[in-house]
């Protein structure tokens, strides 16, 4: 895909954590990144690590930095990350306190290639809402946002968005069922659309298949296990119709028609 890429300053830089609030089951972490570029593109990501006590968690990890889409970038240099704690790296980041140091490399990868807002359908599953937040800010209220969550406490994440349609697995908030049902209805109601999606692999695969059946263009922000985030290790590859591609340099956003499947072996979610 020919998505946009804002280049990163070379090397890991240290910045200060300025906030860490809970949003339902998730954390919203604010970082004052004075030395980073002011204009990352939605879908790009940063490699993050805590300055202190990075290591010595469960299984004596983390050792490597962890990849996170930025959720919002503010004019004063504040970056916000929307995070779900699922292991030693995310556990440590979730416990960061204001004033602590955080290492950043980024922005990295290529972002979504946004088309006309009136045709945009943003589809997120769980923590996959993260990169859709800045994308919906950029596209404005004309773009439709559909989000799926596991439960009511997860669905509180939808509160970060101005206007959304929500589905929950248990029906506690919004529609009962998967967000892909909301997408199917939107697509079947007609009107031209481009779909931008991020979420767990089974959801992304369902979105990809729905769009492929209807010839609707779709851009998928994928995940894979990463060590470096800038093309150095060749560890983050995903299979595509053109062979393996490094998700960190040639993604994480890929066009649906580049993929036979959106299911990535070993992805974090």
């Amino acid at each position: 895909m020919n998505g946009p890429r804002t280049q990163a300053p070379f090397g890991r830089r240290m910045a200060e954590v300025t906030g860490n609030e809970s949003v339902g089951a998730y954390r919203l972490i604010s970082v004052l990144d004075s030395d980073g570029p002011p204009d990352p593109r939605p879908g790009q990501f940063y490699m993050l690590s805590a300055r202190d006590c990075w290591g010595g968690g469960a299984d004596e990890r983390p050792y490597l930095p962890r990849a996170f889409s930025y959720a919002r970038a503010h004019e004063d240099g504040t970056l916000q990350f929307f995070l779900e704690a699922i292991g030693p790296g995310t556990d440590r980041l979730a416990r960061l306190e204001p004033g602590e140091g955080i290492g950043l490399v980024g922005p990295l990868g290529i972002g979504f290639d946004p088309g006309p807002a009136g045709e945009a359908l943003l589809v997120g599953g769980g923590i996959g809402a993260a990169p859709l937040l800045c994308l919906s800010d950029e596209l404005g209220p004309e773009a439709r946002v559909l989000l799926g969550f596991r439960s009511a406490v997860h669905a509180l994440g939808a509160g970060l968005f101005a206007e959304v349609q929500v589905a929950t697995d248990d029906g506690s908030v919004g529609r009962r069922g998967f967000v892909t049902e909301l997408l199917r209805e939107q697509l079947d109601a007609g009107g031209r659309a481009t779909v931008y999606a991020c979420g767990p692999p089974p959801m992304l695969e369902a979105v990809r298949a729905l769009c492929a059946e209807r010839d609707v263009p779709v851009q998928l922000a994928l995940e894979s296990g990463m060590a470096c985030g800038y093309g150095a290790c060749f560890g983050c590859v995903v299979p595509t119709r053109n062979g393996y591609v490094r998700l960190c340099v040639d993604g994480p956003v890929l066009a649906g028609d580049e993929l036979e499947t959106a299911v990535v072996p070993g992805a974090p979610h």
Binding site: Y63, M226, G266
Partner: peptide, 11 residues
């Protein structure tokens, strides 16, 4: 893939 496994202090 997967091609990476993180270990204590390495991979």
């Amino acid at each position: 893939p997967p091609r990476l496994w993180e270990t204590p202090a390495g991979l």
